[in-house]
Amino acid sequence: MAAYRAALIYMLKKLFITDFRNINSAEIDLKPGLTLISGDNGQGKTNFLEALFMVSQGWSFRSRSHDDVINWDAKECMLRVQGEIAVISESEFEQGFLLRRRRGAEVRVDSQKSTNMGELHGRYGCVYMGPEDIALVRGAPELRRRWVDVLMSKSHPDGLDLLRKFRRILRQRNSWLKTSDQNFYGDEQWFALTDIFVQLWSQISQRRAQVLEDCIPLLNEFYAEISGGAEDINLSYINGTGLELAELVSIDLQELQQILLEKMEKLKAREQIMGLTMAGAHREDFALNFSHGKDFRYNGSQGQCRSAGLALGLTAFEYTQRYFQQNTALLVDDIFAELDAKRRQSLANLITKNVKQVFAALPRTEDLPFSSDHLLQVQKGEITTL
C-alpha cells in the first residue's frame, strides 16, 4: 500500500449550510462517535450527508453538475466546515465553498482562496456508504472506475492531476478523429496525440492496479465477516492488455506503454472510421470473481452481490482510514434495511470498529443495530439536534 501520511487526526466540529438542496440554513455541531440522522424519506437526510461529503472532498456522490445542489429558489449555495487537528497539540482548520449558478465556485481552505473544487480534496478522509455500493458489483463499469479512482487520488498525490490530463487529451484526440482534415496531418499528428494519451493511460492503469491489489485482503476480510461465508474474492483488471493484476503492478512503465501503443496501432483504422477513441483508461473495468474464477455479476446470488457491494464500501473506508492514519469520517446512508439480523449486526460491528466519527442516516431508528451517541432529526430540510 502507498506510504501513509503523518499521523494526524482530523475531527469535524461544525458544519454551516446555506441553500444546499432543500436545506435553507443550518449550523450543526459535529461530535465524535456515532451520530444518527433520523427522519422520514424525502426530508433531507441524504442531503445532509451529501453536504458534509462535498465540503470535505470537493465533489458530490449524487450529481455531476454543481448547479444541481443549489436550492431551486436560490441563485447560490454555501457550505463551510470547521474542525480540529489533534497531534501533540491541537489546531483548527476550516474549508468551504460558494457556488453560483453557471458561474463556478469560490473555494477557501483556511486563508487560501481558489476557484478549484479539487483544493478541498485529500485534506482529510471522508467516505460515503449507501445503497449505491450494491450497484458496484453489477452496475456499469463507470461506477467501478470511479470507485478505484477515488482511492487512487487519496493514495497517489498525482492521481487527480493524471485523470484531469487524461480527460483533456481524450477530448483533444476525439476531436481530431472527428475532423475531416485528419489526413492532412497524417501519422505525425496521430502519433503526437497518441503518445501523450498512452503515457497518461499507462500511469493511471498501473496506479489503479496497485490500489486494487492493496484492497484484495481488505475486501476478503469484510466479505467474510458480512456474509459469514468461506469463499474468497479475487479482483481481475480489464484493460485489454491480457496482463494479470500482479503483472500490471510490477511491469516496467515503458514496457507497458509499448504494449498500449501497439494496441492503439491496431485500432487506428477503426478509430478513424468511428471518430472516437476505442481504448483507454476511460474504458477499463475491474471484476469481482469467486475463488473458482466465476464472475460475481453473472454467478452471484442477490445476497452475495449485496454483501460484496457492502464489502467494497468498507474496503474504501478502511483503505482511506489506514492512509489517513485514523482520521476518516464515515457517512452511512440507509444500508441496513434489506439485511437479515445477522448480517446487520456484523456490518454494524465493522462500522463502529476504530471509527472516530460516524454519521448514519436511517428512516427508522429500529434499523440501527447499535446505540447512537448523538441524534439529529431532519424534517423538510430543517435539522434539529435532539
Score class of each variant (00 low, 15 high):
residue 293 G to V: 01
residue 145 R to A: 01
residue 158 D to M: 08
residue 111 S to Q: 13
residue 134 I to G: 10
residue 234 N to Q: 07
residue 63 S to K: 09
residue 312 L to V: 09
residue 201 W to S: 02
residue 294 K to F: 05
residue 91 S to E: 13
residue 139 G to P: 02
residue 83 G to T: 11
residue 258 Q to L: 11
residue 158 D to R: 15
residue 355 V to T: 12
residue 215 C to H: 01
residue 128 Y to F: 10
residue 46 T to Q: 05
residue 180 S to M: 11
residue 346 S to W: 08
residue 230 A to H: 14
residue 82 Q to E: 11
residue 200 L to F: 03
residue 150 V to P: 00
residue 18 T to G: 04
residue 333 D to K: 10
residue 100 R to H: 12
residue 134 I to C: 10
residue 49 L to S: 06
residue 232 D to A: 08
residue 332 V to Q: 12
residue 132 E to S: 14
residue 68 D to E: 11
residue 293 G to L: 01
residue 384 T to H: 02
residue 322 R to S: 04
residue 286 F to G: 05
residue 165 K to I: 12
residue 227 S to Y: 15
residue 42 G to Q: 03
residue 68 D to A: 07
residue 340 D to L: 03
residue 182 Q to Y: 08
residue 124 Y to M: 04
residue 65 S to Q: 15
residue 52 L to G: 05
residue 226 I to N: 04
residue 333 D to L: 06
residue 144 R to M: 11
residue 12 L to E: 02
residue 52 L to I: 13
residue 182 Q to V: 12
residue 116 N to V: 04
residue 66 H to N: 10
residue 184 F to D: 04
residue 281 A to L: 07
residue 363 P to N: 08
residue 155 S to C: 04
residue 230 A to V: 14
residue 290 F to C: 02
residue 212 L to D: 05
residue 269 A to R: 13
residue 199 Q to W: 15
residue 278 M to W: 13
residue 133 D to A: 10
residue 279 A to Y: 02
residue 347 L to R: 15
residue 154 K to A: 03
residue 9 I to Q: 05
residue 142 E to N: 12
residue 135 A to Q: 11
residue 16 F to G: 00
residue 189 Q to R: 13
residue 348 A to Y: 00
residue 193 L to W: 05
residue 234 N to E: 05
residue 122 G to Y: 09
residue 235 L to W: 12
residue 31 K to Q: 07
residue 232 D to Q: 11
residue 23 I to H: 00
residue 317 F to M: 10
residue 380 K to W: 07
residue 110 D to E: 04
residue 174 N to W: 12
residue 160 L to D: 07
residue 121 H to R: 14
residue 110 D to K: 08
residue 62 R to I: 08
residue 178 K to Q: 14
residue 375 L to Q: 12
residue 136 L to D: 03
residue 287 A to K: 10
residue 250 S to D: 09
residue 238 I to Y: 05
residue 49 L to P: 01
residue 101 R to N: 03
residue 311 A to T: 07
residue 123 R to E: 05
residue 104 G to M: 08
residue 315 T to C: 00
residue 281 A to W: 07
residue 380 K to D: 14
residue 95 Q to D: 15
residue 355 V to W: 12
residue 315 T to V: 00
residue 123 R to T: 06
residue 93 F to S: 09
residue 114 S to W: 08
residue 287 A to L: 10
residue 156 H to S: 10
residue 364 R to G: 04
residue 370 F to G: 07
residue 114 S to H: 04
residue 259 I to W: 03
residue 251 I to L: 04
residue 323 Y to S: 07
residue 79 L to V: 04
residue 300 G to L: 01
residue 307 S to I: 02
residue 29 D to N: 08
residue 159 G to P: 10
residue 317 F to V: 09
residue 310 L to M: 01
residue 96 G to H: 14
residue 249 V to W: 11
residue 176 W to C: 02
residue 228 G to S: 05
residue 116 N to P: 00
residue 54 M to T: 13
residue 237 Y to H: 05
residue 285 D to T: 07
residue 273 I to T: 11
residue 204 I to Y: 02
residue 84 E to L: 06
residue 212 L to T: 04
residue 319 Y to N: 09
residue 356 K to R: 13
residue 10 Y to L: 10
residue 64 R to C: 02
residue 364 R to P: 00
residue 226 I to H: 03
